[in-house]
Amino acid sequence: GAPPLPPYSAGGREVTMKKGDILTLLNSTNKDWWKVEVNDRQGFVPAAYVKKLDSGTGKELVLALYDYQEK
């Protein structure tokens, strides 16, 4: 199953993602919540729920390892 959710501390809205989604990583300075862009929406997802990909394009991409439903 998915890892436990860290307390929400990102101070911005969250976004929903599905397992297998490829998201653009915008900011990973917060260790628990990373800012991503998905379907032209920006928001935060739990860092433990995604994995960085080596895209080779200069853009940082992450793979959704679990479904996440915004609150």
Rank of each mutant, 00 (worst) to 15 (best):
1 G>Y: 07
1 G>M: 09
2 A>K: 12
2 A>W: 06
2 A>M: 12
3 P>K: 05
3 P>Q: 04
3 P>W: 05
4 P>Y: 05
4 P>M: 08
4 P>S: 09
5 L>A: 07
5 L>S: 07
5 L>V: 09
6 P>F: 02
6 P>D: 03
6 P>L: 02
6 P>A: 02
7 P>K: 08
8 Y>A: 09
9 S>P: 15
9 S>A: 14
10 A>K: 06
10 A>I: 12
10 A>G: 08
11 G>W: 04
11 G>R: 07
11 G>C: 14
12 G>D: 07
12 G>Y: 09
12 G>I: 08
13 R>M: 13
13 R>V: 13
13 R>L: 13
15 V>L: 15
16 T>H: 11
16 T>W: 13
17 M>R: 00
17 M>I: 14
17 M>G: 00
17 M>Q: 01
17 M>A: 03
17 M>H: 01
18 K>A: 07
18 K>F: 10
18 K>N: 07
18 K>H: 10
20 G>T: 01
20 G>A: 02
21 D>T: 06
22 I>K: 04
22 I>D: 00
23 L>H: 02
23 L>G: 10
24 T>E: 09
24 T>V: 15
25 L>K: 01
25 L>P: 00
25 L>S: 01
25 L>V: 06
26 L>H: 04
26 L>C: 05
26 L>Y: 03
27 N>F: 06
27 N>V: 07
27 N>E: 14
28 S>G: 10
28 S>L: 04
28 S>P: 05
29 T>I: 08
29 T>M: 11
29 T>Q: 13
30 N>C: 08
31 K>M: 12
31 K>Y: 07
31 K>Q: 13
32 D>P: 01
32 D>A: 07
32 D>H: 14
33 W>L: 01
33 W>C: 03
33 W>S: 01
33 W>V: 01
35 K>A: 07
35 K>M: 15
36 V>H: 00
36 V>Q: 00
36 V>G: 00
36 V>W: 00
36 V>I: 06
37 E>Y: 06
37 E>T: 07
37 E>P: 01
37 E>R: 10
37 E>S: 10
38 V>N: 12
38 V>A: 14
39 N>E: 15
39 N>K: 12
39 N>Y: 13
40 D>A: 08
41 R>L: 13
41 R>K: 10
42 Q>N: 07
42 Q>D: 09
42 Q>L: 06
43 G>E: 03
43 G>R: 03
43 G>S: 03
43 G>P: 01
43 G>V: 06
43 G>L: 05
44 F>S: 03
44 F>Y: 14
45 V>H: 00
45 V>D: 01
46 P>M: 02
46 P>Y: 02
46 P>L: 03
46 P>V: 02
46 P>D: 01
46 P>Q: 01
46 P>R: 02
47 A>V: 04
48 A>C: 07
48 A>D: 07
48 A>H: 07
48 A>R: 12
49 Y>N: 02
49 Y>E: 00
49 Y>D: 01
49 Y>W: 08
50 V>Y: 01
50 V>K: 00
50 V>T: 04
50 V>C: 11
50 V>I: 06
50 V>M: 05
50 V>L: 13
51 K>Q: 13
51 K>D: 05
52 K>Q: 09
52 K>S: 07
52 K>H: 08
53 L>I: 14
53 L>K: 03
53 L>W: 07
53 L>Q: 04
54 D>M: 11
54 D>N: 12
54 D>F: 12
55 S>D: 12
55 S>K: 09
55 S>M: 14
55 S>F: 11
56 G>I: 14
56 G>R: 08
56 G>Q: 12
56 G>K: 12
57 T>M: 13
57 T>Q: 14
58 G>L: 11
58 G>I: 09
58 G>D: 14
58 G>P: 09
59 K>G: 09
59 K>P: 14
59 K>V: 14
59 K>A: 13
59 K>I: 14
60 E>S: 14
60 E>P: 14
61 L>N: 05
62 V>Q: 00
63 L>T: 06
63 L>G: 02
64 A>D: 00
64 A>G: 03
65 L>Q: 04
65 L>A: 03
65 L>F: 03
65 L>R: 03
66 Y>V: 05
66 Y>P: 00
66 Y>A: 04
66 Y>Q: 04
67 D>V: 02
68 Y>H: 05
69 Q>P: 15
70 E>F: 10
70 E>T: 13
